[in-house]
């Protein structure tokens, strides 16, 4: 029997045929799974996260008051230098933050160097800076030689062993400008920089490992994509079955 004009209405939430009802229920289930799998998990991650400092941050908090007031012992300066290098080894540094960290590191090295050797060190760093600006290949023999010399000379000052990755970074982060002082900007920004780079949002979901991944990373980067393909597959299979059951031909 033909429909009256008023019966020609389609609404996803008010299906009028058995096929439309079955389709609506299936779509709602799939959308709910999809929504909670994506946003529910991220929300959970956000709710349970705790700001978790790296060990280097505790060291920084311990030594910083004395470093800031220029009353740090040699040991405290060494630990401060080590922490600064730990942050300088990170890749996501902004140029401003790097400049402050470079100043802090170079000043620390300057303070740890015997007064009689400081002038020679400054000359050597300037020579290295000049060389860095001029080389065209990182394999330049003179450049490599001077870099190695600086690393060997300065790593012991911070008590960093040769096998420590920070020993490789050290000579590259020295800046001759303002070497003899830690600038006001550096002093002001150092606590903020350290907190920014050394405190992370962690929880058992980020600490637990699965197939080598941090679990939350695996869930988002691998599992969710598998789920998406699975949901699509399920929808197609169910729709085919529904159509067959109701004798619907596309």
């Amino acid at each position: 029997m033909d429909k009256t004009p008023n019966e020609y209405h389609i609404s996803f939430f008010k299906p009028t045929t058995p096929q439309a009802k079955a389709n609506r229920n299936m779509v709602l289930w799939l959308v709910l799974i999809w929504f909670f799998a994506i946003f529910g998990f991220q929300f959970l991650l956000w709710i349970i996260e705790k700001p978790t400092p790296e060990p280097a941050y505790a060291t920084f908090q311990e030594v910083w008051p004395n470093v800031e007031s220029n009353s740090a012992s040699t040991g405290e300066l060494r630990r401060f230098g080590q922490v600064t290098l730990s942050v300088l080894g990170k890749l996501a540094l902004s140029q401003d933050d790097r400049a402050s960290l470079d100043n802090a590191l170079t000043w620390t090295i300057y303070e740890l160097t015997p007064a009689t050797d400081r002038s020679a060190l400054l000359t050597k760093i300037r020579e290295f800076e000049k060389m860095k600006a001029e080389i065209t290949a990182l394999s330049d023999v003179d450049y490599v030689k001077l870099k190695t010399e600086l690393a060997q000379q300065l790593s012991p000052l911070l008590q960093i062993s040769k096998s420590d990755v920070r020993s490789k970074i050290l000579p590259l982060e020295l800046v001759s400008a303002d070497m003899s002082s830690m600038t006001g900007k550096t002093r002001e920004s150092m606590p903020v920089i350290m907190k920014k780079y050394l405190v992370h949002n962690q929880s058992f979901l980020t600490d637990f490992k699965f197939l080598g991944f941090p679990f939350h990373y695996f869930y988002t980067a691998i599992f969710l994509l598998i789920l998406f393909v699975g949901l699509c597959w399920l929808y197609c299979v169910k729709t085919d079955r529904l159509n067959a059951k109701m004798d619907i031909i596309d």
């Binding site: 890749l91 990755v165 992370h200 980020t206």
Partner: peptide
């Protein structure tokens, strides 16, 4: 050096 900021969610860094 350790870089948790690479994998941790919405890291301040």
């Amino acid at each position: 050096v350790p870089a948790p900021e690479y994998a941790m969610p919405w890291d301040p860094a």
